[in-house]
């Protein structure tokens, strides 16, 4: 996959949810949007990037959201 694009896409999702008044809803929304719409190799690559770099280029809301839902986001197998 194209990591740069994945980072931009994740940030776009984060920016949308960042405007929600309920922070918990924003974090869950960000993580679950990625969970529900991203194919496993996309999630795998993004998570690997976070593991390798601490999430360079990713907005704080995305990092916080992914950290909170890491298990659910991790593709099985």
């Amino acid at each position: 996959m194209n990591l740069g694009k994945l980072i931009e896409m994740a940030n776009q999702i984060g920016r949308y949810h960042d405007a929600l008044p309920d922070r918990a809803e924003a974090l869950t929304g960000t993580a679950m949007h990625i969970r529900r719409f991203w194919e496993p190799r996309m999630r795998r690559e993004l998570l690997a990037h976070i593991d390798a770099t601490g999430g360079a280029g990713l907005d704080p809301i995305v990092l916080e959201a992914i950290a909170a839902k890491r298990t659910e986001l991790q593709p099985q197998g």
């Binding site: 996959m1 194209n2 719409f37 194919e39 190799r41 996309m42 099985q76």
Partner: peptide, 18 residues
Amino acid sequence: KEPGLRIPNMFDAALDGS
């Protein structure tokens, strides 16, 4: 049970060889 690739994702996956 995992979602699949959307069209733009297919292109990126094609270019990464998967």
